[in-house]
Amino acid sequence: MSVYFLCLVLFSVGLYCILRKRNLIKIIIGIVIMEYAVHLFFILVGYRMNGRVPIHSPDQTVLDMVDPLPQALVLTAIVIGLAVTAMIAAIAMRVYEKYGTFDITKIRKLKG
């Protein structure tokens, strides 16, 4: 259970970063950290003690593999996370070009 707790602490650090920081790059960093924590949590739930890698090989027993389903889902989620991060970073760079700052309290004027 302590591993779940450490994973939760990592998620909370990312949540604090998103809620408290005012710099856009810091907010992106918080989102990335939360993503990592969620991926880690899925893999932890699917882990089997003393299990082996979910790949068939001829001279091994089958019954004690780790769960392959969360690994497949997280594999999809990692790539989607990369796409989302690239998208947010591109929007942040455009905001910087327009307003000259990353501070979210100063980005409040609607400039055409």
Partner: peptide, 15 residues
Amino acid sequence: PQFGQPIMKIAQRFI
């Protein structure tokens, strides 16, 4: 479930 003992209802069939 406890860490290290997953339920694996669907994954049993995949394996």
